[in-house]
Amino acid sequence: MEAEIRLRVDGTTHTLRVDTRTSLLDALRDRLGNTSPKKGCDHGQCGSCTVLLDGRRITSCLALAVSHDGAEVTTADGLAPGDTLHPVQRAFLDQDAFQCGYCTPGQVCSVVGMLAEATDGRPSHVTGELTGPVQLTDEEIRERLSGNLCRCGAYVNIVAAVRQTLAEEAP
């Protein structure tokens, strides 16, 4: 079965017919040719496919394309219009927060989404005080990014990249 949907991806609107079994990830990669989000597991276990869906981070392999008709999707590609990298991407480069780079677009989107969640005051598993502003300690950063696996083992530098981003944002 097929259905027609509309997706706004990195600022461009697409209308496409998809097999109703098509994941959002496959729609992006196989149908729209946006291969910035990666497929590491297709089961919501690794985070390589993380994109921002209407501003929130999701694993796009677990989303069916048809259930997101009309959605606004931002990939790591869209975070860097032209050649201007997003501050989080710049920090990943500065801190060498990756090796093979396959988990990286997902990590970057996850960090962007995570920073917004923290700003909104959303607690995590390790947050002590559930109300009030969130302090992004190293423990908080590590916890909040644990949905994004990195087999190359770049975690130490990923945490450093988040710290750099936070320091740059600080007033």
Binding site: R29, G33, T35, S36, P37, K38, K39, T75, A76, D77, L79, A80, D83, L85, Q89, F92, L93, D94, D96, F98, G101, Y102, T104, P105, V108
Partner: peptide
């Protein structure tokens, strides 16, 4: 030196095998 392939990798623009046009 910073990775020469780095800018492409952080944006997801470096094509891996499946992603070659």
């Amino acid at each position: 030196r910073e990775r020469l392939d780095g800018p492409a990798k952080v944006a997801g623009r470096a094509p891996y095998a499946y992603e070659q046009p």
